[in-house]
Amino acid sequence: MVPWRVTFRPGVSLCEQVVYSAKKAVISGQMRPGDSFPSVRSLSKELKINPNTAHKVIAQLVNEGLLEVRPGIGTVVAELPRSRASERISLVGNEIEQLVVEAKKLGMGLDDVLDAVSDHWERLGGEGGKFLRRRS
């Protein structure tokens, strides 16, 4: 089974989108070091992607050190150095950039954006939204 889902966006390389979603699953702890990673066959079958794309995804993740090839077992999630805050931030970098672009287009100020973010943060049960608001 592939323990995460990808919602494909048009115009962006499919391989990159799957690699990105897999990294997210690893860094957010959805998959842990030593967990076996889906095979080419099941990646392709479950995410409905071309087997060649699935090959490329695994090769790239192995290349970047997120996966390890264990002979006789397959690929497993590699032991990672504790994920650094900077890595987590870079994972949501795309989304943050999009948000900033949209907000600027609409002529919103930074305060408005931070307010809207903290509203959503609280709505989803996160703490700290109030702190953000007080600061602004």
Binding site: F8, P10, L14, V40, R41, S44, K45, E46, L47, K48, I49, N50, P51, T53
Partner: peptide, 26 residues
């Protein structure tokens, strides 16, 4: 689609379809 892709590794597939959002990913 799942069964098809599982069998597609190494095979050649020629497919006509109007289900474009599905075809786009594979």
């Amino acid at each position: 689609t799942g069964a098809l892709l599982e069998s597609a590794d190494g095979a050649t597939v020629l497919i006509s379809s109007h289900d474009l959002s599905e075809i786009e990913s594979f």
